[in-house]
Amino acid sequence: MTTTHADYRLSQLDQLEAESIHIFREVAAEFEKPVLMFSGGKDSIVMLRLAEKAFYPAKIPFQLLQIDTGLDFPEVLETRDRWVNRLGVRIVVASIDDAIANGVVVDDGKTSRNRMQTATLLNAIEDNGFTALFGGGRRDEEKARAKERVYSHRDEFGQWDPKMQRPELWSLYNGRIHAGEHMRIFPISNWTELDVWDYIGREGIEIPSIYFSHQRRVFVRDGMLMSETPLNPTRDGEVVEERTVRFRTCGDITLTGCVESTASTIAEIIEEVSVATLTERGATRGDDRFSEAAMEDRKKEGYF
């Protein structure tokens, strides 16, 4: 048996964990068909760990959902498979390419994969009848997210209306929805990037190897270091060279940049994050840089 603190104080990481577990249990109890949106990135892996804890020794009582962009890092997919096998959960994979093939999503050559990702997701929600979707969004990530609820209501079109958000008081969450609507649930809303890393370190959680320092052939585009890959051909003037890098987020391989880093352990990453001067999205996510309101616009349309 483990003895707890003599002064009945919970560390902030324990408080955050307790709050997240509470949210997972509440959703599992009140929603007909919840699902966990799993990207394979560190935030969704932390969510998976929290869900594992919330229902232990029972299995996680819901499925995982992944949107396959066709542009995922192979290392991320490998980690995903190990997690899924260890926990014995089912994963539904909705692929953008399939959605295009089925005519659900139109690829006009101008729409970004990101936009198509949203349409594929909304289609998967409808097809499977999911009523609650856990997402790994954190309020410290971005200004539009700072005002989002833990339970974020989406209408029949999957849209978020920031002006019509339900007040959220104490730890009392209102999960009422009408047929066709769904709720996005953000169990790690109150975690910061540093909290996530501290938790990964404390729990010894397996995350994709691309988060750690490695040698990679990269080129510079729009001030970001991008991976050399056939999925993302270089343009005129872009020079590929090998550098020592790591990724701060895991997204679409054609849009997610890496940073030069020698951090090869969690402790070194935490040290690096502590002294970082750019937000993780601002530094390495092409999809969030288009405008100051980019995230707000995509969220309104039904993005994660």
Binding site: R139, K143, A146, K147, K163, P167, S189, D195, E296
Partner: peptide, 27 residues
């Protein structure tokens, strides 16, 4: 701290916003 575009346009805060900071001993 003005997160939403409509807030920036109107120069007002509409909704409760959550912010995070930490010092060495407290978040």
């Amino acid at each position: 701290t003005d997160g939403l575009r409509s807030e920036r346009e109107q120069g007002i805060t509409i909704d409760v916003a959550y912010r995070y900071f930490a010092t060495p001993n407290r978040k």
